[in-house]
Amino acid sequence: MREILCVASQLQVVNAMKKYFTDGGFKFCHLALPVSDEALLVGSDTVVVLMSPIVCNGKYLSAELPWKQYLREHLPNNLLIIAGFSDFQGDNYLDLLHLPKNIKAFLNRAEIAGGSWEPAYTGGLDVAEQLRRFFEGHGDESVTDELNNTLRILKIARDEMKRHQAEYQSVWKDLLLANRLPSKWNTLNNRWINYYPNFECLPFFGTFVQVNLALQHIAPYFNSNCEEEALFWELDCIEHLEHAKSALVKIEQHYVK
């Protein structure tokens, strides 16, 4: 039996679609937010139905572009159907006010995710644009620049102590504070807090979760105004930040650049 994987958070919509698809002879699975990577380990005949806009942390978000890009790369032969209340017509758009009587015929007409079709914008907060703003900043430095700045300062600090046997106190004063490391962290963390919740509806949110864990792990060091040497070493700040950076760079390369 062909499976429907419905990505939606509005319960009324989920229930309506469940009835519609099960009545049509499909197996129905609901993927709630936040999206987990494992849920997307599906067979090639699974149809992904994405509600758009989707309610994510109280906001209406349009995530169809990143989803299309993700599936084109990972599940190119699967169908991606965008469902919503917009008055669109399209082979891959499911108008919830005019559900097709013949689901199978509708799905037969739809193009696979690896096809070159462009999903229509459904009017919510554009997550692709949110991703771009998160990475590139708006007038500010890019996230990568901010991470690089922070990392470079931390690495210089580590080298000073390991190679040149410098005292942490002098490194703290002459390097960390002189380069406003606590404030840099604050800027980075604020941007993270601001955008992170918007990414819960993305198919690669699992990567953001990993980054979040890394950032939360090292936060106590920065919240101590970078004054606690023990936290510097114990929390492996450089390694965790490197991990966060490499994960984010991968996302940026795939979905922003």
Partner: peptide, 10 residues
């Protein structure tokens, strides 16, 4: 509004 009324949509 349309989400609330989705059960009536069809």
């Amino acid at each position: 509004l349309l989400t609330a009324f989705v059960d009536f949509s069809n």
